[in-house]
Amino acid sequence: MTTLQIFFIYFAVMTTLSSILVITRKNAVHSVIWMLVLFVHIAAIYLFLNAELLAAIQIIVYAGAILVLYLFVIMLLNLREEDTKKKFLSQWPLGLITGVVFIMFFILILGKITVFPTPGKYSVEFIKSEGIMMTIGKVLYTEYLLPFEVVSLILLVAIIGAVVLAKKKIS
């Protein structure tokens, strides 16, 4: 077992543990803090895959923006009385069984995966010589220009929709 594999196992175990902790904590603020741990470890897993830009985006967007949004909403809503109630639905064993079936399903189809015999041109050496930003930027702004513009439209709709939904009605 190489050093890389040992590090990967550490990050994989921490990702799994922190996601279990996210869904089992009673206090929502604790869940969000464990989600921060989860996102940082997933960013580290992107670094294993030579996706430095994705690791940076993961930290900036998830840990920087989405997490703060969650914390703000939890603090805006007064949740004192929620702490005393039960945290799981009464049919929780059914949900657990569904999760186990999901894992079994994924593990069973794992043996069927075959990596495409002729890999593409974006090898590690190619990306190293050109730079990750240059490589991603070239594909994003030529081949995926229309989806990129659609994403900007989605974000605009999200901004307007959030304001319309969350604002107080003026009587």
């Binding site: 990702t15 996601s19 996210v22 869904i23 999760g99 999901f102």
Partner: peptide
């Protein structure tokens, strides 16, 4: 797969809508 399944279980069993 494991992380996805944990997400599915969390969605199905929690009462809190934020979680």
């Amino acid at each position: 797969a494991v992380v996805f399944s944990i997400g599915v279980v969390g969605f199905l069993i929690r009462r809190n809508i934020i979680i």
